[in-house]
Design a protein around this nucleic acid. Structure first.
Length: 703
RNA sequence: GGGCGCUUAGCUCAGUUGGUAGAGCAACCCGUUUACACCGGGUAGGUCGCAGGUUCGAGUCCUGCAGCGCCCACCA
């Protein structure tokens, strides 16, 4: 047997991966419409669209490895497999990145260039970033159907977003309301509850009285907000304070005058602190609720720039929040009103993107009502629809423990603030003319002004499983491929994305967006730290691919990685799987140097077939890490170390060796697509079901 | 404050429905007789966090405890 020259050298991934990906792409088989077998059942999955803010990291690589393994496995099972690629505009993240660069390089702010100017710059940035990302997706070997590529801001997706907003508005699920929002003073926009993150900080709790003759002391960590107090709330059964309920006091306070009503509210804990709560309706969610119930006036003393307003009085107006805090404390001290200062730890709400401390402010914004009964859905609310999707088993989550987390999140869910004061994103399809308001995608005509705000980026992401298939058009793709079979993503975006997709699909289509959710863990460094630029512990997937090959990189990210568990990655691990690649290469080298002679030994065939069934069952159940390990050990410890050794000098083993090699290459192909394709092209006499002889669409060894 | 997870060989972790403890990396010894030194052969290393319970039998199920981590939450 003449062994091809390439087998005389160790396996060199960098030489073969590019041409092989090209061969796959040219074959057209990434597109299910071109598959050799057209009567298979459909299998669809969307790629969680990477943000167009930068480049792919190891987390993306892990996601791509898992998804490509499943996709290739299903394709070889003869299914009509569709894996849709895409990218996400990531509104806030992208705009702030471009703004930062503009500021740094040109010294310009968004006000200098205006809305149109900024959007043009973002467009240029997005184009560049997009081409880098698409190239990276290909380098990983991802068998994505590029003919169906989608971007959250492209015209079909834009149209879907407008349609979704209008339908939800018409169903009464979207409303405009003045409420306390999470205001990000750095990003200059509102954000949703999920975009905030608590940080524990040391702070001081001040206990004080508003005035010497004021009967009740209260405590606060934010004395500057007390300039906006309009009431003191006490528990209705609290004997100490019952007598004051209903009274109103007018007191001078740090250069202004406060009017404080004493009100009763069940939510006040009489055992905490002084048992009384200074109510600041404009700057606290809880206080806002109390104010609503008791008809208290609202005094906004902090503005969007985290400075004091005129309502805070002439002494304080214009001061930064922290300056005002010191000034108020100083005043209290001077007046002898400060009773106690204690150091405490407090959870401060911060903006996930910018890190700024959230300033709760009352603002007129657009909201999604999650509790309102929906006529078209049998009186169920969005919350009900989200809960039902998983409770009924229509959608399952792997690992299962996340189902509990999901339900718990729904219980705590409040209305979703969807309007953002940034320019990049899907513009809210609402038009104003004087007091009139119209909700529609396009301008109703002259004299109408569109709402200046854009939508939360997760609003559009929520439509992803069906907007990518052509919705709201009733396309063939939508009929065939929705609901999608699987949604594979990191557990960190379960609420942001997975839950929002369920919400949107349940309401707009009346069905779940996917049957299974597979949540992978986060990729961390070898010490378990998050990879980040500032720590300098980032491992670049392209770097690993250059050095060890895409196949080795993929294996390092899925082996021993149970769903939902974080992966600790170090370079040694990738190197180890490079060695395995070479092992596979040499197995092939040896077998291909033998003649395909003699029959197939029954016991060895049975043993291999059992492995194949085992691996198949694991893949069906998404136990990818187990399937991979079994193949690894069979090939190295059993096939190479024992069967091949035993066969040496015995030509009658030839048929058996070929039988195992061919089967093993197929089983291994989803995990290591490049090397298996490369070897397959050199296996003489391998049967083929496609004119190009690609293993990628070969038939899986067992049913 | 509520919930969830983890704790198995020096390190990173498997262990799918309970049936005599596993892998990779690292360490040590030996080996270059033709698939592979990106290799082969071998050695050493664990009371499976602690304490109870169920069982003929528990790393695997139940209870309690400890340490670590994560998520959620309007305690001023």
């Amino acid at each position: 047997m003449a062994l091809p020259d390439k087998f005389l050298k160790p396996y060199d991934p960098s030489a073969v991966e590019g041409p092989i990906y090209k061969k796959w792409e040219d074959s057209g088989y990434f597109n299910p419409d071109n598959l050799p077998k057209q009567d298979g059942e459909p299998f669809s999955i969307v790629l969680p669209p990477p943000n167009v803010t930068g480049t792919l990291h190891m987390g993306h690589a892990a996601m791509l490895a898992v998804e490509d393994i499943i996709v290739r496995f299903e394709r070889m099972q003869g299914k009509k497999v569709l894996w849709i690629p895409g990218t996400d505009s990531a509104a806030i993240a992208t705009q702030s990145k471009v703004e930062k660069e503009m500021e740094k390089k040109e010294g310009l702010s968004r006000k200098d260039v205006g809305r149109e100017g900024l959007l043009e710059r973002i467009d240029v940035f997005v184009k560049e970033s997009e081409s880098i990302i698409l190239n990276q997706l290909k380098r990983m070997g991802s068998s994505l159907d590029w003919s169906r590529y989608a971007y959250t801001m492209d015209p079909p997706r834009y149209k879907a977003v407008m349609e979704a907003f209008v339908r939800m508005y018409n169903a009464g699920l979207i409303y405009r309301g003045n409420r306390i929002v999470n205001w990000d003073p750095k990003g200059q926009t509102t954000i949703s509850d999920d975009e905030t993150v608590y940080e524990e900080r040391d702070t001081t709790l001040y206990t004080f009285k508003y005035a010497p003759d004021f009967p009740i002391a209260v405590a606060t960590t934010r004395p500057e907000t007390k300039l906006g107090d309009t009431a003191v709330a006490v528990h209705p059964q609290d004997a100490r304070y019952m007598g004051y309920i209903g009274q109103t006091f007018e007191v001078p306070f740090a250069g202004t005058t406060l009017t404080i009503a004493i009100v009763a509210d069940e939510s006040v804990d009489p055992t905490f602190g002084t048992g009384a709560l200074g109510v600041t309706p404009a700057h606290s969610q809880q206080d806002w609720d109390i104010a609503q119930k008791n008809n208290l006036p609202l005094v906004q003393v902090i503005n969007e720039y985290a400075r004091m307003t005129d309502a805070a009085g002439p002494a304080m107006a214009g001061k930064k929040v922290l300056e005002a805090r010191e000034a108020v404390v100083e005043w209290l001290r001077e007046q002898g009103l400060l009773i106690k200062e204690e150091k405490i730890k407090q959870n401060v709400s911060t903006a996930e993107r910018t890190g700024a401390v959230i300033e709760p402010l009352p603002k007129l914004q657009w909201w999604v009502d999650v509790n309102k009964p929906i006529k078209e859905r049998g009186g169920k609310s969005l919350k009900d629809l989200m809960r039902e999707a998983v409770q009924s088993g229509a959608t399952t989550i792997t690992p299962e423990r996340f189902e509990k987390i999901y339900f718990h999140w729904i219980e705590n869910l409040r209305d979703w603030c969807i309007s953002r004061q940034i320019w990049f994103g899907h513009r809210i399809p609402v038009w104003y003319r004087g007091e009139e308001l119209k909700v529609q995608a396009n301008s109703p005509g002259a004299g109408w002004e569109q709402d200046p705000d854009t939508l939360d980026t997760w609003f559009s992401s929520g439509l992803w499983t069906f907007s990518t298939l052509g919705w709201p058009e009733q396309t063939a793709d939508l009929k065939i491929y929705h609901p999608t079979e699987l949604l594979e993503t990191g557990y960190d975006i379960l609420f942001f994305w997975v839950a929002r997709m369920i919400l949107m699909s349940q309401f707009l289509l009346g069905r779940v967006p996917f049957k299974n959710v597979y949540l992978h863990g986060l990729v961390r460094d070898h010490k378990g730290r998050k990879m980040s630029k500032s720590v300098g512990n980032i491992i670049d997937p392209l770097d690993m691919i250059d050095r060890y090959g895409a196949d080795a990189t993929r294996l390092s990210l899925i082996m021993g990685a149970a769903p939902g568990n974080d992966i600790k990655l170090d370079e040694n691990r990738v190197r180890g799987y490079k060695n395995f690649s070479n092992k596979v290469w040499n197995i092939a080298r040896y077998v291909l140097s033998q003649e395909r002679a003699g029959g197939i030994k029954q016991d060895l065939k049975d043993e291999f077939d059992a492995l194949a069934r085992d691996v198949t069952a694991d893949l069906r159940a998404y136990r990818i890490y187990l399937a991979g390990e079994k193949l690894y050990h069979y090939l190295w410890d059993r096939f190479a170390a024992q069967i091949i050794e035993e066969s040496k000098g015995k030509p009658e083993y030839g048929g058996t060796l070929y039988y195992i090699l061919e089967g093993a290459l197929k089983l291994l192909h989803p995990f290591m697509p490049f090397i298996t394709e490369e070897i397959w092209s050199s296996v003489p006499g391998a049967s083929s079901n496609n004119k190009l002889g690609l293993i990628m669409v070969e038939e899986w060894p067992v049913r």
